Simulated scan of single mutants.
Amino acid sequence: MTINDMAEMPVQHPRAPKTGAEARGRYFNSGNAFNIKLPPVPPRILRDEPAQALAKNETGWVLCDLSAELGCPFPATTPLMLARYATVLAGDGLDVTLTCTASIWYVIEGTARIIVGGETAELGKGDVFLLPGGVESRIEASETAVFWAVGNDPQLAFEKAAPITGEEAATGFVHYPADEITHQLDVVYGRDANDGTSGHALIFSAEPTEASRNIAPTLTLSLNTLKPHSFQPPHKHNSAALTLAVAGDPAYSMVGDLKCDWSPWATLLTPPAEKHSHHNDGDTRAEFLIVQDGGFYYHARTMGFEFY
């Protein structure tokens, strides 16, 4: 049967390849190359995963894995990011060597020691730290500790790439202690926010990525706040966002038409380019930690941030 519509044509193979390199070629056209339908990134508030980690039944991981919905052949929460919780029981250790460029961590509770290559640090509740991918790393808990982490594992899995380590690595180990975070946030609160800013937020960066103001080449991290009985106006951006609900009662987010009520340590998934807003109906300040794959979009000049 003759197919006249380009969009209906199957992939074309080389007619008579002379080499293996020629045989590996494939050909599409302007009708059938751009009609792939990928599953959308779903708006979601993930509560079961933190509950499982905070049950503290065993040392190990709880992945926020939506790969089946996303059509990804590897664990993923968004196409380029994977959120996970980790529990390390008192006296236990957990290997946290990950295949990613970098992973961003928050200590939900407990105390622990982390060994990253030849460096060590003591960790406590409210600390943030950045781990370089591919570097042998281990957490040893002195008392049971629970963590939230986001890495760009799916990005590397999609490219079938491995992290670069050593002097050419894109990131290094960085520790942001809770008391320093509190101080830096107080400094921010000592200044007025103008109409062009999205409230009072602390943005995390590191020495290698200071020029881009990101925490890692493709990842951004901010600790956002909402004063009592206030809200962040509806807005959108082309990056996906994974948000950890740190404090706020009652607080919620609107993602499109979906209302996502916060619960302690839940993870909110905001799809790329989706209209969303955050609301604090309580009498105390709300705080939420946001990781985005925004570094990609800043670099490509396509962040697309705007208020409605």
Rank of each mutant, 00 (worst) to 15 (best):
I164N: 04
I164M: 06
T165G: 09
T165C: 05
G166L: 09
A169S: 15
A170L: 14
P177M: 02
P177L: 00
D179V: 14
D179W: 12
E180T: 14
E180H: 13
H183T: 04
Q184V: 01
L185E: 02
Y189T: 00
R191M: 12
R191V: 00
R191C: 03
T197S: 12
T197A: 09
S198R: 13
A201Q: 07
L202N: 08
A206M: 05
E207M: 09
T209K: 04
T209S: 10
E210D: 06
A211V: 06
S212M: 11
N214Y: 07
A216Y: 02
P217C: 03
T218H: 02
T218Y: 10
T220N: 15
T220F: 00
L223M: 12
N224G: 11
T225Q: 09
L226F: 05
L226Y: 05
K227Y: 10
P234G: 08
H235L: 08
K236C: 11
N238Q: 12
S239W: 04
S239K: 02
A241T: 08
A241L: 10
D249M: 11
P250W: 03
S253C: 02
G256T: 00
D257R: 07
L258E: 12
K259Q: 14
C260N: 13
D261H: 11
W262I: 08
S263C: 05
P264E: 13
W265R: 10
T267F: 05
T267Q: 08
T270A: 02
P272K: 00
K275L: 14
H276L: 05
S277L: 15
N280V: 11
D281H: 14
D283S: 09
R285C: 13
R285N: 11
A286D: 02
F288Q: 01
F288G: 01
D293S: 01
F296V: 13
Y297E: 04
